[in-house]
């Protein structure tokens, strides 16, 4: 069966996106726990911060694949989120480790609601894009098939 680079990037995106969905789920749950006082903000930040960069990097990786395979539509679809991620990390509080969450300001109601909303929006975005990638994968295969025949 034919398997071109586009299809490859889509199947990778599909797999990675599944991970991202879990990331954002974890994110949402973590902030919900914070809001309901189940967790100490210091511990919560310690568990959240290590996951921030991996998420950003994974997201960028399959977009690089999209760029390489010429899937411009998919790339543009993701560009706003990439820009948001870069900006978010650029404006993070002063900290020595990785991550963007600061336990001293995370309990601020503004921050908390913002982070929670961000988690939900990302979850929705990743879910939608999951199906989009699936669709893109099929289309890519179909196109390949048509070219062959």
């Amino acid at each position: 069966m034919a398997f071109n680079f586009s299809a490859f990037s889509y199947i990778i995106a599909l797999i990675v996106d599944a991970f991202l969905i879990f990331f954002s789920l974890f994110h949402v749950i973590a902030f919900d726990e914070l809001k309901t006082d189940y967790k100490n903000p210091v511990e919560q930040c310690n568990s959240l911060n290590p996951l921030v960069l991996p998420e950003y990097i994974l997201h960028i990786v399959f977009n690089v694949l999209f760029a390489a395979s010429g899937e411009w539509l998919s790339l543009f679809f993701n560009l706003p989120l990439i820009a948001y991620h870069i900006n978010r990390y650029r404006t993070r509080p002063v900290m020595s480790g990785y991550g963007i969450y600061d336990p001293t300001s995370i309990m601020n109601a503004d921050q908390l609601t913002r982070c929670q909303r961000e988690g939900w929006i990302k979850l929705a975005f990743y879910l939608l894009s999951f199906f989009y990638y699936l669709y893109g994968y099929v289309i890519a295969l179909e196109r390949e098939h048509l070219e062959q025949t």
């Binding site: 914070l34 006082d37 100490n40 903000p41 336990p103 001293t104 309990m107 601020n108 109601a109 908390l112």
Partner: peptide, 17 residues
């Protein structure tokens, strides 16, 4: 009502603590 932001010298341990 809910407490939105605290000001002062402390560490906010949870939303109202």
């Amino acid at each position: 009502l809910s407490i939105h932001t605290f000001h002062g010298n402390f560490f906010v341990r949870s939303t109202d603590l």
